[in-house]
Write a protein that binds this DNA or RNA. Sequence first.
DNA 1: GCCAAACAAAAACGCTCGTTTCACTTTGGT
DNA 2: ACCAAAGTGAAACGAGCGTTTTTGTTTGGC
Lengths: 202, 202
Amino acid sequence: MAIRESTEQRLLDAADDLFFTRGIAATPIDAVIERAGVSAATLYRGFPSKEALVAAALERRHLEWIETWDAAIARAADDEERALAVFDALDDFRDRPIGSRWCAFLGTAAEYGDAPPEVAEAVRRDSDALRSRLRNLAAPLVAPRSRDDRRRPDDGTDHRASRLGDELLLLVTGDLAMRLREPGHRTDTARGIARVLIASAR
Amino acid sequence: MAIRESTEQRLLDAADDLFFTRGIAATPIDAVIERAGVSAATLYRGFPSKEALVAAALERRHLEWIETWDAAIARAADDEERALAVFDALDDFRDRPIGSRWCAFLGTAAEYGDAPPEVAEAVRRDSDALRSRLRNLAAPLVAPRSRDDRRRPDDGTDHRASRLGDELLLLVTGDLAMRLREPGHRTDTARGIARVLIASAR
DNA sequence: GCCAAACAAAAACGCTCGTTTCACTTTGGT
DNA sequence: ACCAAAGTGAAACGAGCGTTTTTGTTTGGC
Protein backbone atom coordinates (compact mmCIF):
# COMPACT_ATOMS: atom_id res chain seq x y z
CA MET A 1 0.00 0.00 0.00
CA ALA A 2 2.91 2.33 -0.49
CA ILE A 3 4.64 4.16 -3.30
CA ARG A 4 8.32 4.41 -4.26
CA GLU A 5 9.99 7.69 -3.42
CA SER A 6 11.18 8.33 -6.98
CA THR A 7 7.61 7.86 -8.18
CA GLU A 8 6.35 10.22 -5.51
CA GLN A 9 8.86 12.87 -6.58
CA ARG A 10 7.93 12.54 -10.22
CA LEU A 11 4.26 12.90 -9.28
CA LEU A 12 4.93 15.93 -7.12
CA ASP A 13 7.05 17.51 -9.86
CA ALA A 14 4.25 17.07 -12.37
CA ALA A 15 1.55 18.18 -9.93
CA ASP A 16 3.48 21.27 -8.88
CA ASP A 17 4.23 22.37 -12.40
CA LEU A 18 0.77 21.71 -13.83
CA PHE A 19 -1.48 22.71 -10.94
CA PHE A 20 0.27 25.99 -10.23
CA THR A 21 0.77 27.20 -13.78
CA ARG A 22 -2.43 26.03 -15.50
CA GLY A 23 -4.61 26.05 -12.41
CA ILE A 24 -5.85 23.18 -10.29
CA ALA A 25 -9.38 22.87 -11.64
CA ALA A 26 -8.07 23.33 -15.17
CA THR A 27 -5.63 20.43 -14.78
CA PRO A 28 -7.20 16.98 -15.11
CA ILE A 29 -5.62 14.17 -13.16
CA ASP A 30 -4.76 12.48 -16.45
CA ALA A 31 -2.46 15.36 -17.34
CA VAL A 32 -0.53 14.84 -14.11
CA ILE A 33 -0.37 11.11 -14.76
CA GLU A 34 0.93 11.56 -18.27
CA ARG A 35 3.51 14.17 -17.28
CA ALA A 36 4.77 12.00 -14.43
CA GLY A 37 4.87 8.88 -16.60
CA VAL A 38 2.83 7.00 -14.05
CA SER A 39 -0.39 5.05 -14.09
CA ALA A 40 -3.57 6.19 -12.40
CA ALA A 41 -3.53 3.21 -10.05
CA THR A 42 -0.09 4.21 -8.79
CA LEU A 43 -1.13 7.78 -8.12
CA TYR A 44 -4.11 6.66 -6.09
CA ARG A 45 -1.97 4.19 -4.14
CA GLY A 46 0.23 7.11 -3.09
CA PHE A 47 -2.42 9.77 -2.61
CA PRO A 48 -6.03 9.13 -1.61
CA SER A 49 -7.40 11.94 -3.79
CA LYS A 50 -6.55 14.84 -6.05
CA GLU A 51 -6.92 17.21 -3.13
CA ALA A 52 -4.35 15.23 -1.14
CA LEU A 53 -1.94 15.56 -4.06
CA VAL A 54 -2.54 19.30 -4.13
CA ALA A 55 -1.86 19.50 -0.40
CA ALA A 56 1.32 17.45 -0.72
CA ALA A 57 2.59 19.60 -3.58
CA LEU A 58 1.91 22.70 -1.51
CA GLU A 59 3.72 21.19 1.45
CA ARG A 60 6.85 20.45 -0.56
CA ARG A 61 6.74 23.85 -2.21
CA HIS A 62 6.55 25.49 1.19
CA LEU A 63 9.71 23.72 2.33
CA GLU A 64 11.57 24.65 -0.85
CA TRP A 65 10.45 28.25 -0.50
CA ILE A 66 11.74 28.45 3.08
CA GLU A 67 15.06 26.96 1.92
CA THR A 68 15.38 29.52 -0.87
CA TRP A 69 14.51 32.30 1.52
CA ASP A 70 16.97 31.14 4.18
CA ALA A 71 19.73 30.99 1.59
CA ALA A 72 18.99 34.56 0.55
CA ILE A 73 19.03 35.68 4.17
CA ALA A 74 22.37 33.95 4.71
CA ARG A 75 23.85 35.93 1.81
CA ALA A 76 22.81 39.27 3.36
CA ALA A 77 25.31 41.47 5.17
CA ASP A 78 23.27 43.47 7.67
CA ASP A 79 19.85 43.62 9.27
CA GLU A 80 18.31 45.74 6.54
CA GLU A 81 19.57 43.47 3.79
CA ARG A 82 18.32 40.45 5.71
CA ALA A 83 14.83 41.93 5.77
CA LEU A 84 15.07 42.80 2.07
CA ALA A 85 16.33 39.29 1.28
CA VAL A 86 12.73 38.15 0.88
CA PHE A 87 12.68 39.96 -2.47
CA ASP A 88 15.88 38.24 -3.58
CA ALA A 89 14.22 34.97 -2.64
CA LEU A 90 11.16 35.92 -4.71
CA ASP A 91 13.44 36.48 -7.70
CA ASP A 92 15.26 33.19 -7.15
CA PHE A 93 12.06 31.23 -6.69
CA ARG A 94 10.52 32.72 -9.79
CA ASP A 95 13.40 31.59 -11.97
CA ARG A 96 13.20 27.94 -10.95
CA PRO A 97 12.76 25.32 -13.70
CA ILE A 98 9.48 24.24 -12.12
CA GLY A 99 7.44 27.36 -12.31
CA SER A 100 4.15 28.96 -11.52
CA ARG A 101 2.59 32.10 -12.89
CA TRP A 102 2.43 33.56 -9.40
CA CYS A 103 2.12 32.35 -5.82
CA ALA A 104 0.90 28.78 -5.55
CA PHE A 105 -0.62 29.38 -2.13
CA LEU A 106 -2.51 32.52 -3.07
CA GLY A 107 -3.54 30.84 -6.28
CA THR A 108 -4.91 27.86 -4.43
CA ALA A 109 -6.73 30.08 -1.96
CA ALA A 110 -8.20 31.97 -4.90
CA GLU A 111 -9.41 28.85 -6.69
CA TYR A 112 -11.19 27.20 -3.79
CA GLY A 113 -14.21 29.17 -2.60
CA ASP A 114 -13.98 27.07 0.52
CA ALA A 115 -10.96 24.83 0.44
CA PRO A 116 -10.91 21.24 1.70
CA PRO A 117 -9.28 21.09 5.17
CA GLU A 118 -5.95 19.63 4.02
CA VAL A 119 -5.52 22.38 1.43
CA ALA A 120 -6.74 25.20 3.68
CA GLU A 121 -4.29 24.05 6.32
CA ALA A 122 -1.34 24.12 3.89
CA VAL A 123 -2.23 27.61 2.70
CA ARG A 124 -2.67 28.92 6.23
CA ARG A 125 0.65 27.45 7.33
CA ASP A 126 2.47 29.28 4.54
CA SER A 127 0.81 32.58 5.37
CA ASP A 128 1.59 32.22 9.07
CA ALA A 129 5.23 31.37 8.43
CA LEU A 130 5.57 34.30 6.07
CA ARG A 131 4.10 36.70 8.59
CA SER A 132 6.01 35.55 11.66
CA ARG A 133 9.33 35.40 9.83
CA LEU A 134 8.87 38.88 8.39
CA ARG A 135 8.03 40.22 11.83
CA ASN A 136 11.20 38.69 13.25
CA LEU A 137 13.28 40.13 10.43
CA ALA A 138 11.73 43.54 11.05
CA ALA A 139 12.47 43.50 14.78
CA PRO A 140 16.12 44.72 14.60
CA LEU A 141 15.10 47.52 12.24
CA VAL A 142 12.72 49.48 14.44
CA ALA A 143 13.87 52.13 16.86
CA PRO A 144 14.21 50.91 20.46
CA ARG A 145 11.07 51.14 22.54
CA SER A 146 10.12 54.39 24.15
CA ARG A 147 9.59 54.44 27.91
CA ASP A 148 5.83 54.31 27.29
CA ASP A 149 6.10 51.19 25.18
CA ARG A 150 8.31 49.53 27.75
CA ARG A 151 5.41 49.53 30.20
CA ARG A 152 3.25 47.46 27.86
CA PRO A 153 3.15 43.68 28.30
CA ASP A 154 6.00 42.05 26.40
CA ASP A 155 4.50 39.44 24.09
CA GLY A 156 7.79 38.60 22.46
CA THR A 157 7.68 41.03 19.54
CA ASP A 158 7.54 44.77 19.61
CA HIS A 159 4.31 46.05 18.10
CA ARG A 160 6.35 48.39 15.92
CA ALA A 161 8.25 45.39 14.56
CA SER A 162 5.05 43.47 13.88
CA ARG A 163 3.67 46.53 12.10
CA LEU A 164 6.72 46.76 9.84
CA GLY A 165 6.55 43.02 9.33
CA ASP A 166 2.92 43.23 8.28
CA GLU A 167 3.78 46.03 5.91
CA LEU A 168 6.45 43.85 4.33
CA LEU A 169 3.92 41.03 4.08
CA LEU A 170 1.58 43.29 2.16
CA LEU A 171 4.42 44.26 -0.19
CA VAL A 172 5.36 40.64 -0.81
CA THR A 173 1.71 39.73 -1.39
CA GLY A 174 1.28 42.70 -3.69
CA ASP A 175 4.36 41.83 -5.68
CA LEU A 176 3.11 38.27 -6.17
CA ALA A 177 -0.37 39.38 -7.16
CA MET A 178 1.04 41.96 -9.58
CA ARG A 179 2.21 39.04 -11.68
CA LEU A 180 -1.43 38.49 -12.56
CA ARG A 181 -1.64 41.98 -14.02
CA GLU A 182 1.65 41.90 -15.92
CA PRO A 183 3.38 38.52 -16.25
CA GLY A 184 6.85 40.06 -16.38
CA HIS A 185 6.48 42.05 -13.18
CA ARG A 186 9.74 42.41 -11.23
CA THR A 187 10.38 42.95 -7.53
CA ASP A 188 11.95 46.41 -7.95
CA THR A 189 8.85 48.37 -6.98
CA ALA A 190 8.14 46.40 -3.81
CA ARG A 191 11.78 46.46 -2.83
CA GLY A 192 11.92 50.22 -3.27
CA ILE A 193 8.87 50.73 -1.07
CA ALA A 194 10.36 48.44 1.56
CA ARG A 195 13.50 50.57 1.66
CA VAL A 196 11.44 53.69 2.27
CA LEU A 197 9.46 52.01 5.04
CA ILE A 198 12.59 50.73 6.75
CA ALA A 199 14.22 54.14 6.57
CA SER A 200 11.19 55.86 8.03
CA ALA A 201 10.82 53.25 10.80
CA ARG A 202 14.34 53.75 12.07
CA MET B 1 -33.09 36.55 -30.25
CA ALA B 2 -32.90 39.04 -27.42
CA ILE B 3 -33.39 39.19 -23.69
CA ARG B 4 -35.29 41.64 -21.49
CA GLU B 5 -33.18 44.10 -19.52
CA SER B 6 -34.64 43.08 -16.15
CA THR B 7 -33.77 39.46 -16.93
CA GLU B 8 -30.27 40.47 -17.93
CA GLN B 9 -29.79 42.35 -14.67
CA ARG B 10 -31.01 39.42 -12.60
CA LEU B 11 -28.62 37.14 -14.47
CA LEU B 12 -25.70 39.52 -14.00
CA ASP B 13 -26.52 39.91 -10.29
CA ALA B 14 -26.51 36.16 -9.82
CA ALA B 15 -23.41 35.65 -11.95
CA ASP B 16 -21.47 38.39 -10.17
CA ASP B 17 -22.33 37.16 -6.71
CA LEU B 18 -21.75 33.45 -7.40
CA PHE B 19 -18.76 33.56 -9.75
CA PHE B 20 -16.74 35.98 -7.67
CA THR B 21 -17.39 34.54 -4.23
CA ARG B 22 -17.44 30.81 -4.91
CA GLY B 23 -15.19 30.87 -7.95
CA ILE B 24 -16.06 30.57 -11.62
CA ALA B 25 -15.16 26.94 -12.18
CA ALA B 26 -16.77 26.01 -8.87
CA THR B 27 -20.07 27.60 -9.91
CA PRO B 28 -22.17 25.49 -12.29
CA ILE B 29 -24.39 27.32 -14.71
CA ASP B 30 -27.41 25.77 -13.01
CA ALA B 31 -26.58 27.65 -9.81
CA VAL B 32 -26.67 30.94 -11.72
CA ILE B 33 -29.93 29.95 -13.36
CA GLU B 34 -31.56 29.03 -10.08
CA ARG B 35 -30.33 32.16 -8.27
CA ALA B 36 -31.56 34.38 -11.10
CA GLY B 37 -34.90 32.60 -11.33
CA VAL B 38 -34.45 32.08 -15.03
CA SER B 39 -34.47 29.11 -17.36
CA ALA B 40 -31.41 27.80 -19.11
CA ALA B 41 -32.85 28.61 -22.52
CA THR B 42 -33.23 32.25 -21.53
CA LEU B 43 -29.66 32.53 -20.33
CA TYR B 44 -28.33 31.13 -23.58
CA ARG B 45 -30.53 33.45 -25.59
CA GLY B 46 -28.88 36.39 -23.80
CA PHE B 47 -25.33 35.11 -23.63
CA PRO B 48 -23.72 32.70 -26.09
CA SER B 49 -21.69 30.90 -23.41
CA LYS B 50 -20.68 30.84 -19.77
CA GLU B 51 -17.50 32.71 -20.63
CA ALA B 52 -19.53 35.49 -22.23
CA LEU B 53 -21.55 35.76 -19.02
CA VAL B 54 -18.34 36.00 -17.02
CA ALA B 55 -17.05 38.74 -19.32
CA ALA B 56 -20.32 40.67 -19.07
CA ALA B 57 -20.32 40.44 -15.28
CA LEU B 58 -16.74 41.70 -15.21
CA GLU B 59 -17.65 44.55 -17.52
CA ARG B 60 -20.51 45.72 -15.31
CA ARG B 61 -18.40 45.33 -12.19
CA HIS B 62 -15.69 47.48 -13.74
CA LEU B 63 -18.17 50.30 -14.38
CA GLU B 64 -19.54 50.10 -10.83
CA TRP B 65 -16.03 50.12 -9.41
CA ILE B 66 -15.11 53.26 -11.35
CA GLU B 67 -18.31 54.90 -10.12
CA THR B 68 -17.51 54.04 -6.51
CA TRP B 69 -13.97 55.27 -6.91
CA ASP B 70 -15.03 58.55 -8.56
CA ALA B 71 -17.49 59.18 -5.72
CA ALA B 72 -14.70 58.68 -3.18
CA ILE B 73 -12.44 61.04 -5.11
CA ALA B 74 -15.20 63.65 -5.20
CA ARG B 75 -15.47 63.53 -1.41
CA ALA B 76 -11.74 64.24 -0.97
CA ALA B 77 -10.49 67.69 0.01
CA ASP B 78 -6.98 67.94 -1.40
CA ASP B 79 -4.61 66.19 -3.79
CA GLU B 80 -3.25 63.79 -1.19
CA GLU B 81 -6.72 62.74 -0.05
CA ARG B 82 -7.76 62.30 -3.68
CA ALA B 83 -4.90 59.85 -4.20
CA LEU B 84 -5.76 58.05 -0.96
CA ALA B 85 -9.43 57.91 -1.96
CA VAL B 86 -8.78 54.62 -3.72
CA PHE B 87 -8.61 52.98 -0.31
CA ASP B 88 -11.93 54.52 0.73
CA ALA B 89 -13.35 53.13 -2.49
CA LEU B 90 -11.94 49.71 -1.65
CA ASP B 91 -13.74 49.86 1.69
CA ASP B 92 -16.98 50.99 0.08
CA PHE B 93 -16.84 48.35 -2.63
CA ARG B 94 -16.12 45.63 -0.15
CA ASP B 95 -19.24 46.43 1.87
CA ARG B 96 -21.62 46.17 -1.07
CA PRO B 97 -24.55 43.73 -0.79
CA ILE B 98 -23.23 41.83 -3.81
CA GLY B 99 -19.84 40.73 -2.65
CA SER B 100 -16.71 38.88 -3.52
CA ARG B 101 -14.01 37.45 -1.31
CA TRP B 102 -11.44 39.64 -3.01
CA CYS B 103 -10.88 41.23 -6.40
CA ALA B 104 -13.02 39.75 -9.15
CA PHE B 105 -10.50 40.63 -11.84
CA LEU B 106 -7.48 39.21 -10.07
CA GLY B 107 -9.56 36.18 -9.12
CA THR B 108 -10.54 35.62 -12.73
CA ALA B 109 -6.97 36.05 -13.91
CA ALA B 110 -5.91 33.54 -11.28
CA GLU B 111 -8.50 30.94 -12.27
CA TYR B 112 -7.83 30.91 -15.98
CA GLY B 113 -4.38 29.61 -16.87
CA ASP B 114 -4.94 31.18 -20.24
CA ALA B 115 -8.19 33.08 -20.32
CA PRO B 116 -10.55 33.17 -23.29
CA PRO B 117 -10.09 36.43 -25.22
CA GLU B 118 -13.27 38.13 -23.99
CA VAL B 119 -12.31 37.50 -20.37
CA ALA B 120 -8.64 38.38 -20.78
CA GLU B 121 -9.68 41.64 -22.41
CA ALA B 122 -11.97 42.58 -19.49
CA VAL B 123 -9.24 41.85 -16.95
CA ARG B 124 -6.64 43.80 -18.88
CA ARG B 125 -8.96 46.79 -19.23
CA ASP B 126 -9.46 46.95 -15.48
CA SER B 127 -5.73 46.77 -14.79
CA ASP B 128 -4.97 49.45 -17.34
CA ALA B 129 -7.62 51.81 -15.97
CA LEU B 130 -6.37 51.26 -12.44
CA ARG B 131 -2.80 52.03 -13.40
CA SER B 132 -3.43 55.10 -15.53
CA ARG B 133 -5.84 56.63 -13.03
CA LEU B 134 -3.44 56.10 -10.15
CA ARG B 135 -0.64 57.70 -12.14
CA ASN B 136 -2.82 60.73 -12.82
CA LEU B 137 -3.77 61.01 -9.17
CA ALA B 138 -0.11 60.79 -8.23
CA ALA B 139 0.96 63.55 -10.62
CA PRO B 140 0.12 66.54 -8.39
CA LEU B 141 1.90 64.92 -5.44
CA VAL B 142 5.44 64.70 -6.79
CA ALA B 143 7.93 67.50 -6.50
CA PRO B 144 8.24 69.64 -9.64
CA ARG B 145 10.74 68.43 -12.18
CA SER B 146 14.38 69.18 -11.80
CA ARG B 147 16.19 70.92 -14.63
CA ASP B 148 17.58 67.56 -15.73
CA ASP B 149 14.13 66.03 -15.99
CA ARG B 150 12.83 69.00 -17.93
CA ARG B 151 15.15 68.15 -20.76
CA ARG B 152 13.60 64.69 -21.19
CA PRO B 153 10.85 64.22 -23.75
CA ASP B 154 7.46 65.05 -22.24
CA ASP B 155 5.21 62.02 -22.70
CA GLY B 156 2.34 63.50 -20.71
CA THR B 157 3.19 62.11 -17.30
CA ASP B 158 6.24 62.71 -15.21
CA HIS B 159 8.19 59.54 -14.64
CA ARG B 160 8.20 60.30 -10.93
CA ALA B 161 4.40 60.46 -11.00
CA SER B 162 4.14 57.18 -12.84
CA ARG B 163 6.51 55.64 -10.33
CA LEU B 164 4.37 56.76 -7.40
CA GLY B 165 1.31 55.62 -9.29
CA ASP B 166 2.79 52.18 -9.83
CA GLU B 167 3.66 52.00 -6.15
CA LEU B 168 0.05 52.78 -5.28
CA LEU B 169 -1.06 50.09 -7.72
CA LEU B 170 1.11 47.57 -5.93
CA LEU B 171 -0.38 48.63 -2.61
CA VAL B 172 -3.94 48.31 -3.90
CA THR B 173 -3.14 44.93 -5.43
CA GLY B 174 -1.48 43.80 -2.23
CA ASP B 175 -4.41 44.90 -0.11
CA LEU B 176 -6.80 42.96 -2.33
CA ALA B 177 -4.65 39.83 -2.32
CA MET B 178 -4.22 40.03 1.46
CA ARG B 179 -7.90 39.19 1.73
CA LEU B 180 -6.94 35.70 0.62
CA ARG B 181 -4.64 35.34 3.64
CA GLU B 182 -7.01 36.80 6.21
CA PRO B 183 -10.60 37.32 5.13
CA GLY B 184 -11.13 40.28 7.47
CA HIS B 185 -8.14 42.25 6.19
CA ARG B 186 -8.65 46.04 6.24
CA THR B 187 -7.10 48.79 4.17
CA ASP B 188 -5.29 50.45 7.10
CA THR B 189 -1.88 48.95 6.36
CA ALA B 190 -1.88 49.85 2.67
CA ARG B 191 -3.19 53.32 3.41
CA GLY B 192 -0.46 53.89 5.98
CA ILE B 193 2.25 52.85 3.53
CA ALA B 194 0.76 55.12 0.88
CA ARG B 195 0.96 58.08 3.28
CA VAL B 196 4.65 57.40 3.87
CA LEU B 197 5.34 57.13 0.14
CA ILE B 198 3.50 60.35 -0.61
CA ALA B 199 5.35 62.19 2.13
CA SER B 200 8.71 60.98 0.91
CA ALA B 201 7.91 61.82 -2.72
CA ARG B 202 7.11 65.42 -1.97
C1' DG C 1 16.51 -16.85 -8.60
C1' DC C 2 12.26 -15.95 -5.85
C1' DC C 3 8.43 -13.62 -4.33
C1' DA C 4 5.97 -9.99 -2.61
C1' DA C 5 5.40 -5.36 -3.49
C1' DA C 6 5.17 -1.80 -6.92
C1' DC C 7 3.79 -0.67 -11.39
C1' DA C 8 1.56 -0.31 -16.39
C1' DA C 9 -2.24 -0.28 -19.52
C1' DA C 10 -6.77 0.10 -20.35
C1' DA C 11 -11.36 -0.22 -19.60
C1' DA C 12 -15.28 1.00 -16.97
C1' DC C 13 -18.20 3.49 -13.48
C1' DG C 14 -20.83 7.17 -11.87
C1' DC C 15 -21.24 11.75 -11.76
C1' DT C 16 -21.31 16.60 -13.24
C1' DC C 17 -21.11 20.03 -16.42
C1' DG C 18 -22.23 23.20 -20.50
C1' DT C 19 -25.35 23.39 -23.97
C1' DT C 20 -29.40 22.29 -26.96
C1' DT C 21 -33.94 21.03 -27.94
C1' DC C 22 -38.93 20.80 -27.57
C1' DA C 23 -43.53 21.66 -26.33
C1' DC C 24 -45.84 24.91 -24.04
C1' DT C 25 -47.15 29.41 -21.47
C1' DT C 26 -46.71 34.22 -20.37
C1' DT C 27 -45.91 38.99 -21.51
C1' DG C 28 -46.55 43.54 -23.57
C1' DG C 29 -47.23 46.86 -27.38
C1' DT C 30 -50.63 48.18 -30.98
C1' DA D 1 -57.94 41.06 -28.26
C1' DC D 2 -54.16 39.64 -30.87
C1' DC D 3 -49.58 38.00 -31.98
C1' DA D 4 -44.80 37.96 -32.04
C1' DA D 5 -41.29 37.95 -28.78
C1' DA D 6 -39.70 36.34 -24.37
C1' DG D 7 -39.81 32.98 -20.94
C1' DT D 8 -40.69 28.29 -18.52
C1' DG D 9 -39.69 23.47 -17.40
C1' DA D 10 -37.85 19.38 -18.20
C1' DA D 11 -35.56 16.25 -20.69
C1' DA D 12 -31.59 14.84 -23.31
C1' DC D 13 -26.98 15.29 -25.48
C1' DG D 14 -22.12 14.45 -25.46
C1' DA D 15 -18.06 15.21 -23.30
C1' DG D 16 -14.88 15.28 -19.46
C1' DC D 17 -13.87 14.45 -14.90
C1' DG D 18 -12.12 11.77 -10.51
C1' DT D 19 -11.78 7.28 -9.11
C1' DT D 20 -11.82 2.08 -9.12
C1' DT D 21 -11.04 -2.31 -10.95
C1' DT D 22 -8.88 -5.88 -13.54
C1' DT D 23 -5.24 -8.34 -15.74
C1' DG D 24 -1.08 -8.79 -16.26
C1' DT D 25 4.20 -7.23 -16.01
C1' DT D 26 8.32 -5.35 -13.82
C1' DT D 27 11.25 -4.41 -9.94
C1' DG D 28 14.40 -5.05 -6.00
C1' DG D 29 15.90 -7.07 -1.49
C1' DC D 30 16.99 -11.59 0.74
